[in-house]
C-alpha cells in the first residue's frame, strides 16, 4: 500500500445481513480491508461466500447493514442512493446483460459523457481501441458481438469515466479459455501501465494469480486469509485456502489419475453461526473452533489468516 495518504478504498467492519429474525443470512459478516492506489486485490471464495455482495456494497449498488465504506475518502451512497464517484466503476460477469441491446456500442460506451456528437464519436473509437476492438465496432449492436467483445465494450464503458478503481465481478467466468486469457492480459496491461486498481472477484484462483498483488479468501462472509499473492500460493495458512489451491488443476497432468476428493467435510456453503464459520467443513477443527471465532492474525509480512489451529497444521505442499 502506498504512503501516508488515505487508501483508495477503505472498508471498515462491514456487515450486510439479508432477511430478519431466525432467517437472517450474514452475507458479509464483519470485513475490513483497504486497497491502495494502483493496487489489485483479488477476492476469491465459493458461491454464497459473500464476495459479490461485498463488491456491490463497495460500488454503492447495495447499502451495508453496518460498517463503513470510503472510496477515495467518500461514501459510495448518499441519502440511501448510489452516488458513486467516477473514480470507481464496475464490470460484471454477464457482459451481454450489462449492455442495452437497443443502443449502439458507441452510444453505450459514451453514455456517461457530456460531449458533442463529434467528440463522442471520436472518444468512442479511442475507448474501443484501448480495449483492443476495431473502430468499426462503434456502429454495431451488442447482439452482433461475441461474449468476449461484449465484455470489452463493458470495460470500455467503465474506462470512459477514467476510474482509478475497477470492481470486476467474475469478468472472465463466461468467456472461453483463450478469450479469457486475452481479457486478462488487457486488464493486466491497464494495471501495470496506467496504475488502475482492482477489486477483482473470482472463484478461479489461477486467473486471480495473474492479476492480483494481494488475494483475500472469503468464506461465509468473512475473510479467512489475506496475503500477498506469492505468499498465499507459497505458504497458505488456512485449511480453506489450502483446499482451494488443491482444487486447482495441475498445469501438467500427472502420469497417474490425479483426481482426489477435496478433503473437506459437509456440503459447500455449510457454515456455523458460532465459532469459526468454516468449522463444519474443516478436517482439522477441534472443540475450540466450534465455540470461539478466530480473528485474523499475522503469519508473515502482510500475511493474515484466521485459524486457531494454524500452528498445528501439517506443512503445506502443493500436489
Amino acid at each position: 500500500m502506498s504512503g501516508p495518504e488515505a487508501p483508495l478504498l477503505l472498508v471498515e467492519n462491514l456487515y450486510r445481513h439479508f432477511g430478519g429474525g431466525s432467517a437472517t443470512v450474514a452475507a458479509v459478516d464483519g470485513v475490513s480491508c483497504a486497497i491502495g492506489r494502483g493496487e489489485a486485490l483479488g477476492l476469491v471464495g465459493e458461491s454464497g461466500s459473500g464476495k459479490s455482495t461485498l463488491g456491490r456494497v463497495v460500488v454503492g449498488l447495495d447499502a451495508p447493514t453496518s460498517g463503513r465504506v470510503l472510496v477515495a475518502g467518500l461514501p459510495p451512497r448518499r441519502r440511501g442512493r448510489p452516488a458513486l464517484p467516477r473514480q470507481v466503476q464496475m464490470v460484471f460477469q454477464d457482459p451481454a446483460a450489462a449492455l442495452d441491446p437497443r443502443r449502439s456500442v458507441a452510444a453505450s460506451v459514451t453514455e456517461g459523457l457530456d460531449l458533442s456528437r463529434r467528440q463522442r464519436e471520436r472518444r468512442a473509437v479511442e475507448l474501443l481501441e484501448a480495449v483492443g476492438l476495431p473502430a468499426a465496432t462503434a456502429g454495431r449492436f451488442p447482439w452482433a458481438l461475441s461474449g468476449g467483445q461484449c465484455q470489452r465494450v463493458a470495460l470500455a464503458r467503465a474506462l470512459s469515466m477514467q476510474p482509478r478503481l475497477l470492481v470486476a465481478d467474475e469478468p472472465l467466468a463466461a468467456l472461453d479459455a483463450s478469450t479469457a486469457a486475452q481479457m486478462l492480459l488487457l486488464l493486466q496491461g491497464l494495471h501495470r501501465a496506467q496504475g488502475l486498481a482492482y477489486l477483482f472477484i473470482a472463484h478461479d484462483l489461477t486467473m486471480v494469480r495473474h492479476l492480483a498483488d494481494r488475494i483475500a479468501v472469503m468464506y461465509a462472509g468473512r475473510f479467512v486469509e489475506v496475503a500477498p499473492t506469492e505468499s498465499l500460493w507459497g505458504r497458505p495458512v488456512h485449511p480453506y485456502t489450502r483446499a482451494l489451491l488443491d482444487a486447482v488443476p495441475p498445469p501438467v497432468p500427472p502420469v497417474s489419475r490425479a483426481v482426489s476428493p477435496p478433503g473437506l467435510l459437509g456440503e459447500p456453503g455449510a457454515r456455523s453461526a458460532v465459532g469459526c464459520p468454516f468449522a463444519p467443513r474443516c478436517p482439522h477443527a477441534v472443540g475450540r473452533c466450534r465455540v470461539e471465532a478466530p480473528a485474523l492474525r499475522a503469519f508473515g509480512p502482510d500475511h493474515l489468516a484466521a485459524c486457531h489451529q494454524a500452528e498445528g497444521l501439517p506443512p503445506w505442499r502443493l500436489r
Binding site: 486469457a181 493486466q188 494469480r209
Partner: peptide, 20 residues
C-alpha cells in the same frame, strides 16, 4: 499448443490472437 499457452497457471499467459 496455443490453447495450452492460454491456460492460466502455466507461467506467462499467451492468448491466441483473434477469435474463432
Amino acid at each position: 499448443a496455443a490453447l495450452l499457452g492460454a491456460l492460466p497457471g502455466r507461467g506467462v499467459l499467451r492468448p491466441i490472437p483473434g477469435g474463432t
